[in-house]
Structure formats: C-alpha cells, structure tokens
Write a protein that binds this DNA or RNA. Sequence first.
DNA 1: ACAAATATGATAGTAATACTATTACTTTTG
DNA 2: CAAAAGTAATAGTATTACTATCATATTTGT
Lengths: 226, 226
Amino acid sequence: MKNLIASVKIAITSQLYLKDPESSELGLKIVHKGIDLINSIGFEEFTFRKLGLEIKSPEASIYRYFENKHNFLLYLNAWYWGWMEYRLLIATSNVVSAEKRLEKAVFLMTEGVQNDPNFHGIDLVKLQEIVVAEASKTFLNRRVDKANKVGAYQSYKDFVGNVASIIKEINPTYRYPSMLITTVVEGAHQQRFFAEHLPRLTNKQPKPHYLSKFYMDLVLKTIKSN
Amino acid sequence: MKNLIASVKIAITSQLYLKDPESSELGLKIVHKGIDLINSIGFEEFTFRKLGLEIKSPEASIYRYFENKHNFLLYLNAWYWGWMEYRLLIATSNVVSAEKRLEKAVFLMTEGVQNDPNFHGIDLVKLQEIVVAEASKTFLNRRVDKANKVGAYQSYKDFVGNVASIIKEINPTYRYPSMLITTVVEGAHQQRFFAEHLPRLTNKQPKPHYLSKFYMDLVLKTIKSN
DNA sequence: ACAAATATGATAGTAATACTATTACTTTTG
DNA sequence: CAAAAGTAATAGTATTACTATCATATTTGT
C-alpha cells in the first residue's frame, strides 16, 4: 500500500469510525465520494446504499468503516474543524497584533474557501458547503451528549478556544468570548444559507466580503467599549 | 361541535396542512400530543405511528391532517412565530421609545417563555423548546425553496421585518437589520442549547437574563456607533 | 326526520431505510 | 507460503413513511 498519509494529518478521535478511513483506498473513496454525494443530494437523502452504488462497493463494506451515516457526518465535521484549526494556526502565526489575528480568524469563520480547494484529496469547497448546511444536525439531536463524551466536537471546541484567547488578549475582562465566537460562526453559516434560499432573512450585499466585514465590525464593537 | 376558535387565532397558511387541525377535536389532539411527544423523544425519533398510539387513533387518521412529519414541524414553527408576532405587538404597543421597544423585542427573542405558559391549549414552554432544538431543520434541507413558496416561513419573516423597522427607527442608515436580528435569534437558540449540552461553546452565567443582556448589548453597540 | 356528506376507525399492504449476518474470494504481510 | 485481514456478493430483518380500502359513526342541510 502506498503512503496515504501526508505531512499534516488531521487528528480525529477513533471513536467516530470503526476503521480509519484514511488507512485504505476504500476508506478514502468512501470519504471523497461521500462528500460529493452529500453535497449533491443533501444529508437526508444520503444513504450508504446510494454511496455503495457510487463507489461500486456493497453497502456492507461501508458499514465496516462507519457505524451509521450520522457518525459519518460527525467524522466529516470533526475533520473540517481540525482543518480550520490548522488554517487558523497558519494564518495567525507570526502576526504580532492581536487585533490583526482576530481579523484573520473572523475571516476564516465567515468567508468561503477560496484557494487551496483540495487537501488530502478532499474537496474543501464541497465539505464547507456540507458544514454550512448540515453541521447543526451533528448536535441538534438526542445523541449529542454521547457524541460529546467520545470527543466528536473536540476540534470545534479547540478552534473556539483559540479564538477566545485572542479576544482575551484584546480585552482581558470580556466575559463572553465563546458565546460571541459561536454566535459569529453559526450566524455566518445561516446568513450564507439565507442569502441563497430566504433572502428576506438577511441583507445580502453585492460588495465582496460583506459578511466578514459585518461580523468583524460586530465583534470589535462588542468586545471593545466597556 | 363547540367553538374551538378563541378571540385571537394564529394565522397559518393552509398549504401546510391537508385539514385544519384547529377545526376538530382530533386535530387539536394531534397538535397538543404531538408537541408533547416531539419534546420528549426528539423530532428524529418522532413518528406518526407513535403519535397514533399516544392519541389512540390510527396513523392513517393523522395523515389526513398532515402530509408528513416534516410539514407538521413546519406547522408548529409557523404557529410559534405567529404567536411571537402577537407577543411582540402586545409588548411594544404604546411604547414610545424605539430603544425600549427594541429591548422588549430582544428579550422576547432570547429569553424563555415564563408566564402565560398555555395558549389555545398549547404548551408554550414545550413548543419553544422544540423550536430551539428543531427549528433549523425546517429550512436546512432540500425542500426549503418549496416550503418557502407556500409561505411556511411567512410569520418568521414578518417578525424579523417588524424588529428590523424598530432598528431602522433608531438608526435609519444601518444596512444590516435583518442579518443582525436573525443572528440574534438563531444565536440565542444555539446558546441555550450549548449551555445544556456543550458548555465550552458558550459562557453560561448564573445571573438572570444574561442571554438577553449579552445580545441587547451586542445589538445596541452594533447599530449605534458609526 | 332523514338522506347525504363528512370524519374517523380498523386493517392491510408497499417500497425504502438502516442496518446485521454469512460465506467466498482476494490481497497483504510475517 | 500460510495465516490474517480486507473486500465482495448476497440475503435477510425490523422499522419507517407512507397509501388504499371499507365499515362505522357523526354532522349537516332541507
């Protein structure tokens, strides 16, 4: 088997899979084509049977990697936030000004992937679209506490923790950094969805980066005065 | 049949049901017990078969009122926002100061139902819990455009429109009122959920109304300066 | 008061989903 | 080169998300 592991590997708790999908060709195919399929038909319509037809492998083979489609979505979500942590690290290292680092973080949280659209063979544009449209389903259900216990949301928490410490640098007395960050992350996702489907619930602007500007303005005003 | 319609009726597009559930005893039972059941087992686990067992009526009878459980959730959501509009109207009428009206609106959007817990026989505390935990599923799916066309989100849009016009009164040049409001509404829902299940993603405080204070502060700072 | 319309109950049936199980074949590896 | 591990092929099950049919009960208009 050729080496499938590149220099940077996104670490994901082994509790989310039965067998590491990055350890075999079939596993990688499941992830890559799974992203394509969820992106094209949506998570509700997505089944392992359909994915099996796509990759020309039986449904049962996919079940050897993931217990069910919910865990597959948890896996993709964890991978996404692991990758976001990595991007945050790169974007902020060697930047002295905390405010500049915060700006980079907000940009990452609110804007779509642009360059670097492929990493470890994963289509990052599609993966991000999945996270925007489906990620809230990873926690808005009765399995959330169990999933949390096995570390399903660890990389998301770490990301939020990292941005929170930037805010603490800027204003050490500010009491709600995590609340503010998750409001921005989930808010930005919703606004992007609304802009496409329910425009009256948002205020789409023609100018580039209006979303990150809106949220950056909101964050700075909120944490600075008082 | 006795009169089931009280003085104020929440108007809901007839496209969301096959037969108006407020027009019969069975219909009301479906709605009341349906709220109880979704609240207790979650929307994924909820089926019309289970609800049928609860109300001792066959599954098929429920299908005469709602095409499927997704439309049932849309109906509950529409009802909730219709009721919120009504609450907003009551809370803001005869209040001269726009800022005071905005404060009341933010309070409604971010705090849990407290008094008035029963309206038309509907358990509003449970209904609100359902909206917090499940409402995003009403639009985060492939049927959103179809549902939007038949007016499923009308009362939510109206509510947002009403609050937006208060913001416009305070700052007529502010460009993102709807974006700001939906960020607050969806954000507050998420924070309440996080406080219970993923505490590291929020900053829960022991003091009362910390959520509405956080969001009121955020809104005022955002719309005022500049 | 009574026929017609309407609402509900009882029951059955179907296609698809979300899995589990078994056995056979094919690679990889020590 | 044999044992172990991975994959394919196939079949089977319980549940879900409906649809259909027919009998019975209730309401309604005249």
